[in-house]
């Protein structure tokens, strides 16, 4: 009785979960601070950590996190890393922290996070946890007075395609998947317990200006902009490399097709002659001939990712330039008055 009740409850939960898509990631202020601290202290090294929390309906609550030590390419240390993770989870459980992995966080420099590794990590996580997110924090951008946090997940259609590992143009067209559809950004909500809110209100009276304002009014954005442009140019180079790969492929493909046509015509003419002579016609296909071997189509994944990356850089540049414009106008107005 109790058993069947529990099962139906579980089933109910399972069906419900499928039905509601993830809409909001709700992060505790504590997690925000922890992520910032970890990423900033070890910047410019790129770091990662695990997010713990709860999955409630369409909201994914991130209530705690812990950092990973910097990874090294060594089997032994890797095993130690896994131990560390288990140990940490056990320890946190003892002090009543939600011990449910909901994803991971990582730092990035100038938004250059769209890599194949990220997708692979995503797929690894996704195997165990149906709903996971990756929170990306950019310390370089935060120096400009912006809280550069982003929550990402892979779109379902992309994941399906990735599992089948078939990134041909035809497949992509069939599923109507383009580079914008790889990642889905999920809106972030920040929450704090009432206790923390009370403490912050008590400790920090309302001020007219804060550090954020100073950072925002900083006139020199050139280093940031320059780095962004550099990355953009690099990406463009990569993109044109990818494009050349495709051109090469298509050239080969069309050459092969003309060869096939020529071969076919020859064979038909031959068959005609044979028929005229009263002999058995030869088959019109010959799998052993090298010109019929299909040329593998290069994967579009790389070019998709690069395109995505370019788009990110463009957005960042636009954002920064927009800010600069307002700063310059402000400067001008100040100087004139």
């Amino acid at each position: 009785m109790a058993n069947s009740g529990a099962r139906s409850f579980l089933q109910a939960v399972a069906t419900e979960e499928v039905a509601t898509p993830l809409r909001v990631v709700q992060i505790e202020g504590l997690v925000v601070l922890k992520i910032i601290k970890h990423c900033k202290e070890l910047s410019p090294a790129l770091v990662t950590g695990q997010l713990l929390g709860l999955d409630v309906g369409s909201v994914l609550e991130v209530t705690n996190c812990f950092p990973f030590p910097i990874r090294e390419e060594d089997e032994e240390i890797e095993a130690e890393g896994a131990n560390y993770q288990l140990e940490m989870m056990r320890c946190l459980r003892e002090v009543n922290v939600d011990n449910n992995t909901v994803g991971w966080y990582q730092s990035t420099l100038y938004g250059s996070f769209q890599t194949v590794e990220l997708i692979e990590t995503f797929m690894n996580y996704q195997e165990n946890i149906r709903r996971c997110v990756c929170i990306i924090y950019d310390p370089s951008r935060s120096n400009q007075g912006v809280l550069a946090l982003k929550a990402l997940k892979l779109s379902d259609s992309f994941m399906e395609l990735y599992r089948s590992n078939n990134f041909t143009g035809e497949q992509l067209r069939e599923r109507n998947l383009s580079w914008v559809d790889i990642f889905e950004e999920i809106p972030i909500k920040v929450s704090n317990s009432a206790l923390i809110s009370a403490f912050m209100t008590e400790l920090e009276p309302d001020t007219h200006v804060n550090q954020c304002d100073y950072d925002r009014l900083q006139l020199s954005t050139h280093p940031y902009l320059e780095r962004n442009m550099e990355f953009l140019v690099e990406c463009m180079d990569d993109l044109s490399m990818e494009q050349q790969k495709f051109q090469y492929y298509y050239r080969n493909l069309s050459r092969q097709q003309t060869q096939q046509q020529a071969w076919l015509q020859k064979r038909r003419a031959e068959n005609m002659a044979r028929r005229a002579a009263g002999e058995e016609p030869l088959p019109e296909e010959d799998p052993s001939n090298p010109i019929f071997k299909p040329i593998p189509e290069p994967s579009r994944l790389d070019s998709f990712l690069i395109t995505n990356q370019v788009a990110t850089y463009c957005n960042q540049i636009n954002g920064v330039v927009g800010q600069s414009f307002s700063r310059l106008s402000l400067m001008k107005a100040l100087h004139e008055s």
Partner: peptide
């Protein structure tokens, strides 16, 4: 450290959306 994050999001119990680039700029101005 906390100032950089902005008290606005740490003081209250819930914030629905992170402030964007230009909104922050506007507030600062």
């Amino acid at each position: 450290e906390a100032e950089r994050v902005g008290f606005d999001i740490l003081k209250t119990t819930t914030v629905d959306r992170l402030p964007g680039d230009l909104e922050g700029m506007e507030a600062t101005m």
